[in-house]
Design a protein around this nucleic acid. Structure first.
Length: 483
RNA sequence: GGCCCGUUGGAGAAGUGGCUUAACUCACCGCCCUUUCAAGGCGGCAUUCACGGGUUCGAAUCCCGUACGGGUCACCA
């Protein structure tokens, strides 16, 4: 029987969906879809201290926003559930008991202080800090004595000595670790909850996960998980360790890093399109090989493979993301962008609840091809909603040109006299001003643009002026001429 | 420090022994188009693949060493 591919993404519920998590989820999703398999979501909530209230709901929402929906997991269920660790405690317990009974794991009564001392002592001797196995050989009597004092205990996995753990990583090839470099590690914490390494192994096996793609920071966890698989006699899934996403200084993106916006919800708030984010993220560490860079989700499913994922870290390039988003905005339906733009305009107080849809549509159409994020609509269209125009240094330089007063005065009169104030008639009026004053090109347009919009850069002048309306255009020019 | 991993332009990268005088994209710089501004088009931007040895008729591509960078060494995931 052909085994179907099953992948998963298993985040800890820290509250927000990080871009790195989204990218890992994306890779797992694409791989499963490409091979006609299933992609599942599982919540790794074994850290009681870090679990955030309702965090689960938060990032589930953002996964949905990205379109990375799961075939099994929270909300949708599935025959291998439950899909969060804290609901699976009894399952882990059974497995721990088995390891304990077989002597493959043992209780450890060392306190944190004792372990800390051990670490310090080792470091002082210039040896690598690790657990030396003090409780490894405790007799039943000694254990009973510890139990009697009510001392807290953890369960540690007995790491086999002198063994090499090898696996074939889909991205990094053959990777090998010496078991002697790994101390007996904790599989059940003193609060009775299993650690990540243990829970993840048990869950991946029970949920019949065939391929595990995760960040490179998990590479050194793999031998531990291999040991657990071995202890239970389970088949090992295929691993793929993705290159890290780096900040501009080449360091792993830390959640506290201020230099880069890191959470999906922040991008959503800024008016990024989910397709753009997916497209940008997939290119971080993966390359399609050809010359195409813009991919729909369907195309990605078709094109994706782990053997085209690189081994070295990828720097998160904010500019490229902006460009990518701009491409998607440009290609998107105008109506969709208008819908996205409305809240920003309302928030800025430019339009109310009963706004003029036709006007807003024209406004958005004017800026759509030049935006890099929909939130920019506020700043971009500010001049349409203010009475006072502020002129900066650059603007004043243009207004100081000798052609400015002549051109402005002429255009003002033409604008005033225009029967209909539209892009076409404005264009004609400007043409007349040119004939009349002899100024053309930059000398003609720049003073007009700057006087009315306050900006030296912008979109189509004729449409901008028409949208602004005669009244604003004329009064702004008058205000300048009066000075 | 131990163990792992990596190193092609400012960034993402293609390239897996000859087809490479190293694709493509972002950024940057020019030019064209547009009477302005954008958008768009075109072109420029690594004589060289961290460095040093080697293997080979031939190396960015294979091997060794050095340097640099990163990850990880938790009762966090």
């Amino acid at each position: 029987m052909k085994v179907t591919v099953r992948t998963r993404f298993a985040p800890s519920p820290t509250g927000h969906l990080h871009i790195g998590s989204a990218r890992t989820a994306l890779f797992n999703y694409l791989f499963a879809k490409k091979l006609g398999g299933q992609y599942l979501l599982r919540i790794e909530d074994t850290d009681q201290n870090r679990n955030v209230e309702n965090a689960e709901l938060g990032f589930i929402k953002w996964f949905e926003w990205l379109g990375l929906t799961w075939d099994e997991g929270p909300g949708v269920g599935g025959e291998y559930g439950p899909y969060s660790c804290m609901e699976r405690l009894d399952i882990y317990q059974k497995h721990v008991d088995r390891l304990l009974a077989e002597g493959k794991a043992y209780p450890c009564y060392c306190t944190e202080e004792e372990l800390e001392q051990e670490r310090e002592a080792l470091m002082a001797k210039n040896e690598l800090p690790r657990y030396l196995g003090k409780c490894r050989t405790l007799t039943d009597e000694q254990r009973a004595a510890h139990e009697a004092t009510g001392r807290k205990k953890t369960i540690r996995f007995r790491v086999p000595e002198d063994k090499f753990y090898k696996f074939n990583d889909m991205i990094r090839g053959e990777v090998e670790f010496d078991s002697n470099g790994i101390g007996d590690f904790v599989i059940v914490k003193s609060d009775g909850i299993p650690t990540y390494n243990f829970a993840v192994s048990v869950d991946d096996h029970l949920m019949q996960i065939t391929h595990v793609a995760r960040g490179e920071e998990h590479l050194t966890n793999t031998p531990r998980q291999l040991m657990i698989y071995e202890a239970f006699g389970w088949d090992v899934p295929t691993f793929a360790h993705l290159p890290l996403i780096l900040n501009e200084s080449g360091k792993k993106l830390s959640k506290r890093d201020q230099s880069i916006i890191q959470f999906i919800e922040q991008y959503a708030e800024l008016g990024y399109l989910p397709e753009a984010l997916n497209n940008f993220l997939v290119l971080l560490g993966w390359s399609p090989g050809g010359e195409q860079e813009i991919f729909s989700m369907d195309e990605l499913v078709e094109a994706f493979s782990f053997d085209r994922v690189s081994k070295s870290g990828a720097v998160f390039d904010v500019d490229k993301l902006a460009w990518m988003n701009g491409q998607y905005i440009k290609a998107a339906d105008l109506d969709r962008i208008v819908d996205m733009a409305v809240p920003y305009l309302q928030q800025a107080g430019y339009i109310g609840a009963d706004y003029d849809r036709a006007f807003v549509t024209e406004l958005v159409a004017l800026f759509k091809d030049g935006m890099t994020a929909v939130s920019q609509i506020g700043e971009l269209s500010a001049m349409f909603f203010t009475d006072e125009v502020a002129y900066d240094e650059e603007a004043n330089a243009v207004l100081g040109e000798e052609s400015a007063p002549t051109v402005l005065a002429a255009f003002r009169d033409k604008a005033q006299a225009l029967e209909e104030f539209s892009a076409d008639t404005i264009k004609a009026a400007l043409k007349d001003v040119q004939k009349e004053t002899g100024f053309k090109g930059k000398q003609l347009f720049m003073p007009t643009r700057v006087a009315v919009t306050g900006q030296t850069h912008g979109r189509d002048l004729n449409i901008s002026l028409a949208l602004l309306g005669r009244e604003k255009v004329v009064s702004r020019i008058d205000a300048l001429l009066d000075k």
